[in-house]
Design a protein around this nucleic acid. Structure first.
Lengths: 265, 265
DNA sequence: GCTGTCTCTTTACGGCGTAAAGGTAGCAGG
DNA sequence: CCTGCTACCTTTACGCCGTAAAGAGACAGC
């Protein structure tokens, strides 16, 4: 049995994640804490929501709290841990149960929609590394919620387990594209559609033989996108992306139905 | 018609992307160029492959070329443009046609597998913003390739267009998880499975009531993962993730078959 | 009131992208 | 040949970043 370097740090970070929300507060000597982990995490989320991941710095969070960056290190070991805490905390706002009376499919659709709009509300979450799940409490709540829906399919555990991954990956991948394009205009000052128009018109300039080089692309553009109809409410590209999301989701769920039918045959 | 700020920069970056690989080279007065855009892009890709996105800095690329960071700015306007060039250049290594003699499904599977392993070879690509497609030549080649496969389904253009997004998002989302976990050990010095074990054992410590709080999760773990069988060749987690990828892909393609059947009904 | 502890600030270090200025090498025209 | 222009490349510097180290000041328990 090997003791791995940093195991003590792991213990500390798990304790931070799973600590009871109202901490017991054994007062020690020294001045009263002016901040708290919760307050710092909330503030950091506010900064990230407003300024994006690029605008999230220890200095920025400290400033919003009337402190220096270094003050935060009294409560949080480092920026990475803060990100983990932000991630798990944000997940708390997801719904935790879905109506299963109409079967698993409407519930799964609602779950995916909720996760999708969650990612759009907090695009920075998509930039927090997903590979090493933090194993925070809310991460498990989210997983538990999805499992309640998916076990309703009657599929065996192994299939359910993989379905979890499939759905998460799909929603995540889809949301990423919109989330990034939403944030881009704020940083560059050019709207998405204007940007696209400028590039597209230049495209013909640098690649006059476009239609011959990419016949399928030309066919796609010729056949299926007549005139982006002007709609003041929702930008064209954004609506297209949402519809692509819904379409793909229904394709996946059709595939799940096929799996169920196969299992019951 | 409004002229947007930065249009000149867009023109320059499009020219960089679409420039002929063997440039015409009108020699001007002054010293011979010691570097080239191609060389810089290749070197930057090598750095990113080896050190990850976090290790990719102008200074690092310059050093590998025996120059300072600032020397690169003679050839490339800034780091963002370099990233765009790297992205499009890397895409060039993807296969450009697939055997359609057995129908669209094996071809689509092969396409997804190729993209999946591409992302694992160049994990940094997943961190290049996807929202604003660069509209580089190789991006169109990749799209053209996929379209050739998908038009074989006989589905209408609108459906094909959305299918493109669905497949890309799914593969991207799936690859992201593995790619990040692959890179993590190199940076932290702890292997993925060891890390997981350390966290999991602490989980029972901080949340002794785990099984009651998360009954579905407990059920899933109890039923479907007996003992990770030791396999020297491929780490357990990695194999699991690959299988999840393949499973989800087949679910999606089942859904596509259902759509085809519906369209032909 | 003294002492120990905890909060928070100050300062500093080594990284980053890149703006600005200048040195130098090589070709074009006199 | 020499001159002068231009493009390559370096040096220096600025303002960001995360965070290590050291110390100032506040409060609790003795």
């Amino acid at each position: 049995m090997v003791i791995y370097a940093g195991q003590g740090d792991v213990r500390r970070s798990m304790a931070l994640l799973w600590r009871a929300p109202g901490s017991p507060e054994v007062r020690a000597p020294g001045p009263r804490p002016g901040l708290s982990v919760d307050l710092i995490v909330e503030t950091a989320i506010a900064v990230a929501d407003a300024e994006g991941m690029a605008g999230l710095s220890m200095r920025a969070v400290g400033e919003r709290l009337g402190r220096t960056a270094m003050a935060l290190y009294t409560y949080v070991p480092n920026k990475n841990e803060l990100l983990d805490l932000m991630h798990d905390r944000a997940l708390a706002e997801l719904p935790t149960d879905y109506d299963l009376s109409a079967g698993w499919r409407p519930a799964a659709t609602a779950w995916a929609d909720a996760l999708w709009s969650f990612y759009l509300r907090h695009p920075w979450v998509l930039q927090v590394s997903q590979a090493r799940p933090v194993l925070g409490p809310n991460e498990y709540v989210v997983l538990e919620t999805l499992l309640r829906v998916l076990f309703e399919t009657g599929l065996p555990s192994a299939a359910v387990r993989r379905l979890v991954g499939t759905l998460f990956h799909y929603v995540r991948g889809s949301a990423q594209t919109v989330a990034e394009s939403r944030h881009a205009p704020a940083t560059t000052g050019v709207s998405d559609e204007d940007w696209w128009r400028a590039r597209a018109s230049l495209l013909l300039e640098v690649a006059p033989d476009f239609a011959e080089r990419f016949p399928m692309v030309a066919r796609l553009e010729g056949e299926s996108s007549p005139e982006p109809p002007a709609d003041a409410d929702e930008p064209y590209l954004e609506r297209e992306t949402r519809r692509t999301f819904e379409f793909g989701l229904s394709v996946i769920l059709d595939g799940v139905e096929a799996a169920i039918a196969r299992a019951n045959a």
